[in-house]
Amino acid sequence: MHAERQVRVYSRGGCEVVQLIGEIDHATASLVERDVLVSVRAASGVVVDLTETTFLDSAGLRCLDRVVAAFGDRGAPVRVAAPADGMVRFTLELIGFLPDLLVEDVGTAMTGMTN
């Protein structure tokens, strides 16, 4: 699958929402990372939406970590939306991925951006 089919970016409530779709793995992670960072140049806040992400391997986790760090370096607050009952959320919690950034859905993430 090409990365352009795995990355959807849209504006909501003054922030950019980056939706990652499907499997983010060794075959696609570098393309996904590039597409995300090129698509979102400047934003007052960024939500990385993993609600449609079905799998993250170690390359996908590194991709997510680099994307979150890049937005942080740009001064944009970041939240990561991953459903509590999903395998992706389980994986993120298992590795201890920035628990203060994790929320269950995009709506909750948007609320967190205004606090």
Score class of each variant (00 low, 15 high):
103 V>N: 03
5 R>P: 02
72 G>P: 10
64 L>T: 07
34 R>S: 13
90 F>A: 14
9 V>Q: 12
35 D>P: 00
112 G>T: 15
27 A>C: 07
113 M>S: 10
2 H>I: 01
79 R>S: 05
30 S>H: 09
84 A>H: 11
101 L>A: 10
29 A>Y: 06
77 P>S: 09
96 G>S: 06
24 I>R: 00
113 M>Y: 06
94 L>M: 13
106 V>I: 08
54 T>I: 02
55 F>V: 00
41 R>F: 05
13 G>R: 12
76 A>L: 07
13 G>W: 01
10 Y>S: 10
15 C>S: 09
102 L>A: 11
84 A>G: 08
26 H>A: 11
52 E>T: 04
48 V>F: 05
86 G>C: 15
31 L>V: 04
11 S>P: 01
17 V>K: 00
25 D>P: 09
87 M>R: 13
76 A>S: 10
73 D>M: 09
63 C>H: 01
39 S>H: 11
14 G>Q: 05
17 V>Q: 00
103 V>L: 05
20 L>F: 04
108 T>D: 09
91 T>P: 04
94 L>H: 06
58 S>H: 09
71 F>Y: 13
22 G>Y: 14
15 C>V: 09
31 L>T: 12
88 V>Y: 10
47 V>E: 04
49 D>V: 08
84 A>F: 08
101 L>M: 11
97 F>Y: 10
109 A>W: 07
89 R>C: 02
113 M>C: 13
98 L>M: 06
28 T>M: 10
106 V>N: 05
29 A>K: 07
44 S>G: 12
44 S>W: 01
41 R>S: 13
18 V>R: 02
74 R>F: 00
87 M>C: 07
86 G>T: 14
19 Q>W: 02
43 A>Q: 00
103 V>W: 02
61 L>G: 03
53 T>C: 10
18 V>W: 02
46 V>M: 04
54 T>L: 12
109 A>P: 07
27 A>T: 15
114 T>G: 06
51 T>P: 01
50 L>E: 08
44 S>P: 02
39 S>F: 10
78 V>M: 07
83 P>A: 14
25 D>H: 06
69 A>T: 15
68 V>M: 05
33 E>W: 05
113 M>G: 07
4 E>Q: 12
91 T>R: 15
68 V>Q: 01
19 Q>A: 15
22 G>L: 09
49 D>L: 05
88 V>T: 14
54 T>M: 04
97 F>A: 02
16 E>V: 01
64 L>S: 04
32 V>L: 01
65 D>S: 11
108 T>Q: 12
1 M>G: 09
21 I>K: 07
72 G>S: 15
71 F>N: 04
59 A>Y: 13
46 V>K: 03
92 L>I: 05
112 G>M: 12
67 V>P: 01
113 M>Q: 15
49 D>K: 06
50 L>H: 07
36 V>L: 00
8 R>A: 12
75 G>Q: 14
104 E>Y: 01
86 G>K: 10
85 D>M: 02
38 V>L: 13
86 G>Q: 13
75 G>H: 12
71 F>R: 03
58 S>E: 08
17 V>M: 01
33 E>V: 07
29 A>P: 09
22 G>P: 12
95 I>D: 02
43 A>D: 00
5 R>Y: 15
105 D>Y: 11
79 R>M: 13
114 T>L: 14
7 V>T: 02
43 A>P: 00
85 D>G: 08
50 L>Y: 03
13 G>A: 14
